[in-house]
Amino acid sequence: MATIQQVAEAFSTHRYSEVYPFLHPEVSWTLVGAARLEGRDQVIQACEGALQQLSRSTTQFLRFKAIVSADAVAVDAIARYVDQKWQSSFVSSCDIFEFVQGTLTNITSYTQEIDSSTIR
């Protein structure tokens, strides 16, 4: 059985299929400023769509820190994405995961594309 930290880290590193067994049927995913997804099916559909987009690029995590409590995990990350034309983009993100008895019930994601000169 995976720990809540392992589930959260898998999600934040785009290893979504590892997370699917832990999704509560009524999970919600808030993409702050963009959308709110309700239910396991919507979350999986969004993850699969993201994987299709990510398949056209490589990902390198420049920062990856997890903070864990008894029923929640926060992951702060900065990732560099390089597309097939060798163009880079940098994204800072913070994902907050809430669990009930090891089942993922809520995800809140904050993401912002950033300038590479701001990375420390």
Rank of each mutant, 00 (worst) to 15 (best):
F61M: 08
S89C: 11
E113I: 06
Q84N: 13
R63M: 05
S92M: 11
I114E: 02
S55Q: 09
E98K: 13
D41I: 03
R80H: 07
R63T: 07
E48N: 02
V91M: 11
S55P: 04
E98Q: 14
T59A: 10
S93K: 10
T30Y: 04
S92E: 15
R63P: 06
E48H: 01
K85Q: 11
A77P: 00
D76N: 12
A79T: 05
S92T: 08
V82E: 14
T59N: 03
A35T: 06
V43A: 06
S88L: 02
R36K: 15
K85H: 03
A79F: 08
R36I: 10
Y81M: 09
I114M: 09
D41N: 11
L51T: 09
S88F: 01
N106H: 15
L31R: 04
A70M: 07
C47S: 13
C94T: 14
V91W: 09
I78L: 11
T59V: 13
T108R: 15
L54Q: 04
R40D: 02
S109H: 04
T105Q: 13
L51D: 10
A46W: 10
Q87A: 06
R36V: 13
A79H: 09
T30K: 11
A72N: 12
T108I: 14
L104H: 08
V91A: 05
A34T: 09
E38M: 09
L104P: 12
G39Y: 03
A34Q: 12
V43W: 03
A77N: 06
V73E: 10
V32D: 08
R63C: 02
D95A: 10
A50T: 14
S109C: 13
I44S: 06
D83T: 07
A70W: 07
I96W: 11
D76W: 03
D71R: 12
Y81N: 04
R63A: 03
A79P: 03
S88Y: 04
A70N: 07
G49S: 12
S93M: 13
V100E: 15
A34G: 03
Q60R: 14
V73Y: 10
E38F: 02
T58Y: 05
Q60F: 06
I78N: 02
R56T: 11
G49C: 00
Q53N: 03
S109T: 15
A74I: 11
K65D: 14
A50R: 11
T58R: 14
T103V: 10
L37D: 08
T58F: 05
N106L: 10
V43Q: 07
L62T: 01
L31N: 08
A77D: 08
S92C: 09
V32R: 08
F64M: 06
I44G: 02
L104G: 08
I44K: 03
V32Q: 13
S109F: 00
L62N: 01
Q101D: 15
D71G: 12
L31I: 12
T108C: 12
I114Q: 06
Q101T: 11
D95L: 07
F64E: 00
L104F: 12
D95R: 04
G49Y: 01
I78D: 03
A46H: 09
D95I: 05
G39S: 05
Q60I: 01
Q45W: 05
N106M: 02
R80A: 02
S109L: 14
Q84C: 01
F64T: 04
W86R: 09
S69H: 07
R56G: 14
E38L: 11
I44A: 06
V32A: 08
V82D: 08
